[in-house]
Design a protein around this nucleic acid. Structure first.
Length: 381
RNA sequence: GGGGGGAUAGCGAAGUGGCUAAACGCGGUUGACUGUAAAUCAACUCUCCCUGAGUUCGGCGGUUCGAAUCCGUCUCCCCCCA
């Protein structure tokens, strides 16, 4: 294992678009950016083995503080030798702080200055997560990149609500940073919030930069806002962030938003979308989204995407994948998950190549045109 | 040969005089899904010129203002006795 410390290196900036390529060096290896990071909330990318993640050239993979805290418990993961050993992953791992659960489990939680009270969805227990506790759990889990505990606020939120939330999240960022005991081998990212309000995004970003994090996330996106607003959120955040630090756009994984993010200087993306829609029978492809349940694929003995190099596309037909889906066979979910992840990873590979060749804007425009994403109100995929 | 039970939409199965084009499940069709409480959720699934109309509950014939529901009869299926 390469025990290099965390370091981000920009390798090229596209002369045509300003998008950039880079290398993220971590204690568990170096990975190229821009990159898409598969999500493995419960210490597994659902249906996909670590060996398969290697096969599809995944860079970083995600896991989750809140969920691992509940089960199996940070102590057990620590005793196993950390998350990498526990789940047999040798590549870099990033853990989210539990901040997204403040959003997704909002029906059963309460926020105060000190932290967030959750109701354990497994047994009803009352749980209290603080910025310090989140960092401590993440220290125990041992990911290469960890997140500040934030509130991912809902959209829409009023300016006043958002202002209070952003200010509290900034105080939490400071508290988390102060509690971080493994700054030498775990990079703690600050998370920019502020909804669609530029003034608040600016305040959030500036204050985090002042605290000097090794990387910055853009949060509060993909929570129901339109793409146009999401792109504004990115713009309003990135313009206040230092060029030389990595930027991570949280929770974004539709192809159009990834390319728009890269164009704006985002280096890292993660999303459950490819794996979730795969389990639900939808494949991403160079022809757009394919709902494999559709009757028209019953006798379609061609691969999902002839241009794809994944094991699913090299070995299986749509008719077979439809059959597996109809029979609720796990292999179908696995093959589709592998394919969708590979599709997005391949997309970022193409993006990197285009940046290196100073033609990213052309690449993006051609891609959008090909997929009819260039029209107003186009439905992305 | 005698006795008993049953036949409801693609399948299974409720319903036993009006509120029933007929619950529910399966199957089928189509959508949704963005730092994962999601192998989940939603809509539609007799026909049509579909915010309304038309034909249905094994067949035929009755009773009734009104029948999938009551009566007669026929056909088919299942069980028991001989």
């Amino acid at each position: 294992m390469n025990m290099e410390k965390f370091r981000f290196e920009i390798t090229h900036t596209c002369k045509q678009s300003g998008a950039r390529t880079g290398i993220l060096h971590t204690p568990h290896g170096s990975v190229l950016t821009p990159m898409f990071m598969p999500v493995g909330t419960l210490a597994t990318v659902k249906f996909v083995s670590p060996e398969e993640l290697t096969e599809i050239k995944a860079g970083v993979i995600l896991s989750n503080t809140y969920h691992l805290w509940l089960r199996p418990g940070a102590d057990i993961v620590k005793e196993a030798g950390g998350l990498h050993k526990f789940m047999n992953v040798e590549r870099p791992i990033l853990t989210d702080s539990g901040g997204f659960q403040v959003f997704s489990l909002s029906d059963t939680r309460k926020i105060n200055e000190e932290g967030v009270t959750f109701k354990n969805h497994l047994n009803g227990d009352t749980l209290f997560l603080t910025p310090e506790k989140s960092i401590q759990i993440q220290n125990d889990l041992g990911a290469d990149i960890i997140m500040s505990f934030d509130e991912c606020p809902p959209y829409p939120s009023t300016y006043d609500y958002m202002k209070n939330s952003v200010e509290r999240t900034l105080r939490w960022a400071k508290r988390g940073k102060d509690a971080h005991m493994r700054a030498d081998d775990q990079a703690l990212f600050g998370i920019v919030q502020g909804g669609e309000f530029e003034e608040l995004r600016a305040m959030s970003a500036r204050a985090l930069v002042e605290m000097d994090f090794p990387g910055y996330s853009i949060g509060g996106t993909s929570v129901g806002e339109t793409k146009e607003i999401m792109y504004k959120m990115i713009d309003y955040s990135i313009k206040y962030l230092p060029l030389e630090k990595p930027r991570y756009l949280m929770g974004v994984g539709s192809v159009d938003a990834i390319l728009e993010g890269v164009l704006r200087g985002v280096d890292m993306f993660d999303c459950v979308l490819p794996t979730r829609i795969a389990r639900h029978g939808t494949a991403m492809s160079s022809q757009g989204r394919i709902n494999i349940r559709n009757q028209k694929y019953e006798r379609d003995f061609t691969p999902l995407d002839p241009q794809c190099d994944c094991i699913t596309c090299k070995n299986y037909t749509k008719a077979y994948l439809k059959h597996l889906n109809k029979c609720n066979e796990g292999l179908g979910q696995r093959l589709l998950s592998i394919h969708n992840l590979r599709y997005l990873i391949h997309l970022t590979e193409q993006a990197r190549q285009a940046i290196l060749e100073d033609r990213f804007l052309d690449f993006k425009n051609e891609y959008f045109k090909l997929h009819h994403l260039d029209k107003p109100n186009a439905k992305g995929f």
